[in-house]
C-alpha cells in the first residue's frame, strides 16, 4: 500500500531524528570512558576508572543515598494520596467537589517558584530546612494535583458495573478500592509511580533551596556542585552525570512500554 519511496523516506526521517537526539548523549557516554580530561574522545584506552573517581570526588555515595530515601518516601506517599483522592473524586463523589476539584487542578498550573519563598521561610522557622523530611513533605503536597487528576481519570474510566457489583457483594468503600479498583488500575498506578519517581529524583530546584547543607544534599545538587568544581575534568563530569541519571534511565529501560503506554492512555482519555 505504501510506496517504496515513502517507506524509504520514513526510515530516513526516523534515523535522522534519532541520531539528532542521541548524538549528545552518546558522545557524553563515550567521554565518560575516555581517559582524556579535556573531554576529547580516546576510544583506544577505554576505562571505567572515571566512574569510581567521580563517585569518590563527587560525594556521590552520600548524595545518592539522600536522593533514594527522599524519592522512595515521596513516591510511596504521593501514590497513596493520589489513589485516595482519585477514588474520592472519581468514584465516591466529594462534598463541595465543584469547588474543590478546580482548586486542586489549579495546583497543576502553579509553578514551584511561586510558593517556594514563603515555604522556605516558614520551614526555616519550624526547623524543616536542611531536612529530608521537609523536602518529602513539600514533594507530597506538590504531587497532589497531578496525582488526583491522574487517578480520578483512571477510576472514572473503569466500568461502573464493577463498582456496582462490588457494592452488591457487600464490599465496603475501603475494600472496594484496594481489592478491586486498585488492582484493575495497576497500569495507571505503575505509570504514576514511575512519573513520580522520575520527577522527585530529577528535582534540582527544591533540593537546592531546601537542602543547603552539603551533608544533606541530593544527587542532582551534588552533581551541580561537582560540575562547577571540575570544569577541567570533563570525563569525570560525564561519569558523574551518568551515575546520577542511571536510576531513572534504568527504570525507563525496564518499564518503557508501561511508561509510554501510560502517557498515551492519559492523553487519549482527556
Amino acid at each position: 500500500m505504501i510506496s517504496r519511496y515513502e517507506r524509504l523516506s520514513n526510515y530516513v526521517i526516523v534515523i535522522v531524528l534519532t541520531v539528532a537526539v542521541l548524538f549528545p548523549v552518546a558522545w557524553f557516554v563515550l567521554t565518560s570512558v575516555s581517559p582524556n580530561t579535556s573531554g576529547a574522545l580516546d576510544l583506544s584506552r577505554i576505562s571505567l576508572s572515571n566512574f569510581s573517581a567521580a563517585w569518590r570526588d563527587g560525594n556521590l555515595a552520600h548524595s545518592m543515598y539522600a536522593s533514594l530515601v527522599i524519592t522512595v518516601s515521596a513516591v510511596i506517599g504521593q501514590t497513596i494520596l493520589a489513589i485516595l483522592s482519585g477514588y474520592a473524586f472519581g468514584v465516591l463523589g466529594v462534598v463541595g467537589e465543584r469547588f474543590l476539584f478546580p482548586v486542586i487542578l489549579l495546583g497543576m498550573m502553579v509553578s514551584t517558584e511561586v510558593i517556594v519563598i514563603p515555604l522556605y521561610y516558614e520551614f526555616q522557622r519550624v526547623g524543616l530546612t536542611n531536612s529530608w523530611l521537609g523536602l518529602v513533605i513539600i514533594q507530597l503536597g506538590m504531587g497532589v494535583p497531578f496525582g488526583t487528576y491522574w487517578m480520578r481519570a483512571t477510576f472514572r474510566a473503569l466500568p461502573r458495573s464493577v463498582m456496582d457489583s462490588a457494592a452488591v457483594d457487600g464490599a465496603g468503600v475501603w475494600s472496594t478500592l484496594w481489592r478491586i479498583l486498585v488492582p484493575m488500575a495497576r497500569p495507571a498506578v505503575l505509570t504514576l509511580v514511575i512519573l513520580s519517581f522520575m520527577w522527585t529524583w530529577n528535582d534540582f530546584f527544591l533540593s537546592l533551596i531546601f537542602l543547603g547543607d552539603p551533608e544533606k544534599q541530593t544527587a542532582t545538587v551534588a552533581l551541580g556542585a561537582f560540575q562547577g568544581r571540575h570544569v577541567l575534568q570533563v570525563n569525570l563530569m560525564a561519569a558523574g552525570s551518568l551515575i546520577v541519571s542511571l536510576p531513572v534511565v534504568a527504570l525507563y529501560l525496564f518499564f518503557q512500554r508501561e511508561f509510554i503506554s501510560g502517557v498515551m492512555a492519559g492523553a487519549v482519555k482527556e
Binding site: 494520596l81 474520592a88 463541595g96 495546583g107 514563603p118 513533605i137
Partner: peptide, 22 residues
C-alpha cells in the same frame, strides 16, 4: 460524598499547607 471528603482529606490538607497557603 462525605466519605469521599474523608478520603480526600489527607491530600487536601497537604495540598493546602504546601501549595495554597504559601
Amino acid at each position: 460524598r462525605w466519605i469521599g471528603l474523608l478520603f480526600l482529606s489527607p491530600a487536601l490538607l497537604l495540598y493546602g499547607a504546601i501549595v495554597l497557603v504559601p
